[in-house]
């Protein structure tokens, strides 16, 4: 794991990727900071940090686009998947390397509040909260990026796809507001999910009874929940959508609030995607 971590981190600096990532991020954040805080003579640092989320959406795909796609393209995955190290450890090493570069870049922005603190009073809790939030949000974005990178052997398509997915997680909460709120539509929505699950089951196992079982179990579950507590289905689509919104949970951090459920959410989100990536690579052996 350490070997992969060190190698990946080194690669960021022997190829242009690391420099582009740091350069783009620091340039845009620097411009924002100069205009919104220095020129505007505003000491509200946490609102500046809030606007950084958007820059992450742009630059995180750069960090993760080639992390696995390039291995596949150059066929170096034949080395990684035949050495006596578990695939999960290799993925973790790569994830930690991306995180390390991300944190190094973030730490440069510590200079900004330092400048501000000479001229005004800053709310330490808000700033520390924001940085903890960034750490978690970045980890989730990177885990999505790594997963997307495992799907294709082209860096460009991995970058574009990651960007799209990140944008969707950003606006999904907003989209949820447009969804129908009625109980009937929620039932249909859950049925579609069940059918989707069954279709996936069928496509992977080619086993009709297994797929039928998924549909049956899903229907029974929906029926029971409907009978027990109808209200559960009210506005379910929007609730489900907002559950997937990474940025919504972030909004408490810049206020200096550390919510345990948000931290658990981010950590498990990240863990889930890394697990999915490992499974994806393992599955490749069998296809």
């Amino acid at each position: 794991m350490l070997a992969v971590f060190l190698k990946e981190l080194r690669t960021y600096f022997t190829t242009p990727i690391g420099y582009i990532f740091m350069g783009v991020f620091l340039l845009i954040s620097g411009i924002l900071f100069t205009t919104s805080n220095i020129f505007a003579m505003n000491s509200d640092y946490s609102s500046f940090l809030g606007s950084l989320v958007f820059i992450f959406l742009l630059v995180i795909p750069l960090l993760t686009m080639k992390i696995l796609s390039e291995e596949r393209k150059q066929k170096t995955d034949q080395l990684l998947l035949t050495v006596p190290i578990a695939t999960g450890k290799i993925i973790t090493g790569k994830f930690l390397a991306a995180m390390a570069l991300y944190l190094i870049t973030m730490s440069v922005t510590f200079l900004y509040p330092l400048f501000l603190s000479f001229h005004g009073k800053l709310d330490a809790a808000q700033i520390i909260g924001s940085y903890i939030g960034f750490f978690l949000l970045g980890a989730s974005f990177i885990s999505i990026g790594i997963f997307v990178s495992s799907l294709s052997d082209s860096q460009a398509s991995a970058a574009i796809l990651t960007f799209c997915v990140l944008i969707i997680t950003w606006i999904i909460d907003f989209l949820g507001g447009f969804m129908p709120q009625s109980i009937a539509s929620a039932v249909i929505f859950t049925l579609i999910i069940v059918i989707g699950g069954a279709a996936w089951m069928y496509s992977t196992t080619k086993n009709t009874p297994a797929a039928a079982l998924v549909i049956l179990a899903g229907m029974i579950l929906i029926g029971l929940l409907y009978l027990i507590n109808k209200e559960l289905f009210f506005n379910l689509i929007a609730k489900t959508f907002s559950w997937f919104s990474l940025t919504k949970r972030f909004s408490d951090f810049p206020m200096g609030i550390l919510k345990l459920d948000a931290i658990v959410y981010y950590v498990s989100f990240c863990g889930f995607f890394l697990f999915l990536t490992t499974q994806r690579l393992e599955k490749q052996r069998w296809s």
């Binding site: 190698k7 690669t11 190829t15 150059q74 066929k75 170096t76 035949t82």
Partner: peptide, 16 residues
């Protein structure tokens, strides 16, 4: 896997 050394058709080299 410790017992095996593998040279695939295209050597798995990192160019940089």
């Amino acid at each position: 896997r410790r017992k095996i050394g593998y040279l695939p058709e295209q050597p798995p080299l990192y160019m940089d």
